[in-house]
Design a protein around this nucleic acid. Structure first.
Ligand SMILES: [Mn+2]
Ligand SMILES: [Mn+2]
Ligand SMILES: [Zn+2]
Ligand SMILES: [Zn+2]
Lengths: 142, 142
DNA sequence: TATTAAATTGTAATGATTACAAATTAGTAA
DNA sequence: TTACTAATTTGTAATCATTACAATTTAATA
């Protein structure tokens, strides 16, 4: 927990229990949760928590590059505490989002034709192993 | 226009004026418009057009891989008639979305750890050349 | 311990997208 | 050509994620 306090201090933003809880949640659940996922989970142990606080905090943490915001699904933002840019896979069937640890020569690009690159996102979308197997079984045994 | 008719025929979906207009719009405006952009523009020449039709048509065209759906902005879908997977740049300041034609070794991946990859999206987010210059001028001449 | 700017909270508003049912139409076959 | 039917289009209402806002609370500082 102390490491999260340090993280906020380094970024000169106020240390609040809500922010600490949100960072801790993201650090211990590498499932790329949405704001709503985060809210629902933390609300259990902190019934006074407001949904707005979760949205505000995630935005603040993002602006300070403490967390990353993914736009892989297209209808909701997902958040990721993992440091360093990495690729992701989204299963269109079950919604699973996985880290994909592959090397990419464009991962660290900072400039392209005069445009300043601040973030690089590599998204793969398709059918996960699990869902693919389920579909296969259905076809074989109808 | 005949080429759009062929495209729909090949995909065995009904040829409607709305679908033809939508494809034509995307084919002649490579600005990655949203559903709303498309609706507003086409509504001018076809006041009877429904927003729902635009959403439905874009979804149908996407399912048949006639157009691509981008999730780069995070709060709205953008559409792209351009064939073949290619990378994109989003300016966080002005909203501009550009094609980035670079080679990527992961562009044509079909499988990763048993997961079936159907789409590859490479998104760069940052500040475009134009907006960067504007910011620079502001600092120099306040 | 008092002060104050920043953060949190709850509610209302917004914006994108989807659901739905009635009306229309494209494709097909007589 | 005409009649039929399933697919499509339309308009409206509903939903879902996110943001705006004002009142209340709190973390940081002196
Ligand atoms: Mn990740
Ligand atoms: Mn493009
Ligand atoms: Zn899956
Ligand atoms: Zn710009």
């Amino acid at each position: 927990m102390q490491k999260y306090v340090q993280l906020l201090k380094q970024n000169k933003i106020k240390i609040t229990p809500q922010r600490l809880q949100i960072i801790q949640f993201l650090d211990t659940h590498h499932t790329h949760p949405t704001a709503e996922d985060t809210y629902k989970t933390l609300k259990k142990n902190n019934p006074a928590l407001s949904r707005t606080t979760v949205y505000n905090s995630l935005e603040t943490l993002r602006k300070h590059h403490i967390i990353q915001e993914l736009t892989i699904s297209g209808n909701e933002h997902c958040y990721d505490f993992k440091q360093g840019s990495h690729h992701h896979f989204l299963c269109r069937t079950c919604g699973l989002i996985l880290d994909i640890d592959i090397k990419c020569p464009n991962q660290d690009r900072l400039l392209h034709n005069g445009h300043h690159i601040e973030e690089v996102h590599g998204y793969f979308k398709g059918l996960c192993k699990n869902c693919a197997n389920k579909q296969k079984n259905k076809k074989v045994k109808p």
